[in-house]
């Protein structure tokens, strides 16, 4: 019998999971989430707030300022809505994306390359899927908080045109989840800060062109196809349908798009963490 070192011989609860997930998942993502929440105490609140206010500034300047000149816009379902109510749901989707991407790219990159955080985590009984789920949940949480705040601003400004706007909250959580898992997957393959710039390089045009400020119908077919392949457009259309009350069948397709994005992101993140820290 080996004497336990120094203290009472209390054994931690051991997860005896077997099967294909046995070495990947210990069912303990909440420890990773708990660590993340504790660590946010030391983050800079200025950065957190700037990510929140960015879409609000767009809404105020373009929606109200430009909206006075533009008047009404026709949505993809043929409904005519005031310009501010047209761009507000798009900016809502953008704020979910911003929050999720910030956490799952820059923060994850730093933890992976410099802080060796995941190396330490994976030397415990945590598996790579616990780490991936925990970190993605934190990113999703940030996206969700941004979006909830934005939704309140929309309500105050009278830009939620239908009761279905309340469903925009779960929708943006889904969108944030999708962006967070794909963002973390991509980040786990990057090796330098220079490569991180590519993420910004893709995000800016995606933000500007995904039917955010005007309908896709202004583009030639070829460009439309490209935009419809990228994720943000699906988020914009989904949220816009909910806040304007113009529900349509294609919205289910948008939901499916994000479900697939989540599964793909989680799979690649888990694989990559395993290859990097448990090879």
């Amino acid at each position: 019998m080996t004497a336990a070192p120094m203290l009472a011989p209390v054994r931690p609860a051991q997860s005896r999971r077997t099967g294909p997930l046995g070495s990947l998942y210990a069912g303990n993502s909440r420890a990773v989430i708990g660590r993340g929440l504790l660590a946010t105490r030391s983050t800079s609140w200025l950065i957190v707030l700037s990510g929140f206010f960015e879409p609000i500034f767009y809404l105020l300047s373009l929606g109200i300022g430009l909206g006075a000149i533009v008047g009404a816009v026709t949505t993809s379902t043929g409904q005519s809505v005031p310009y501010a109510a047209y761009i507000a749901p798009a900016l809502l989707a953008v704020s979910a994306m911003n929050g999720a991407i910030f956490d799952s790219t820059w923060n994850v990159f730093f933890k992976m390359q410099y802080a060796k955080l995941y190396e330490g985590m994976l030397a415990t009984s945590l598996g790579p899927l616990d780490v991936a789920l925990g970190e993605i949940f934190l990113a999703l949480l940030r996206g969700g908080v941004y979006a909830a705040g934005f939704l309140i601003v929309m309500q105050v400004l009278g830009l939620n045109l239908a009761w279905t706007a309340i469903l925009a909250l779960p929708a943006v959580l889904l969108i944030a989840f999708g962006f967070a898992s794909l963002g973390m997957a991509i980040t786990s393959y990057l090796k330098s800060f220079q490569q991180m710039d590519w993420i910004t390089f893709v995000m800016l045009p995606m933000f500007l062109f995904s039917a955010t400020f005007y309908p896709l119908s202004v583009y030639p077919q070829a460009i439309r196809v490209v935009i419809e392949i990228l994720p943000l457009w699906h988020g914009v259309e989904l949220v816009r349908g909910l806040t304007t009350g113009a529900l349509s069948l294609p919205m289910l397709g948008h939901v499916l798009y994000f479900v697939v994005m989540i599964v793909v992101g989680l799979t690649f993140t888990t694989r990559r963490l395993r290859a990097l820290f448990l090879n």
Binding site: P12, A13, Q14, S15, A26, N28, A31, V32, G34, R35, L38, G120, M121, T124, S125, L126
Partner: peptide, 9 residues
Amino acid sequence: IVYGRYFGM
């Protein structure tokens, strides 16, 4: 504390 939590304690 956080490290202990990783072990499910």
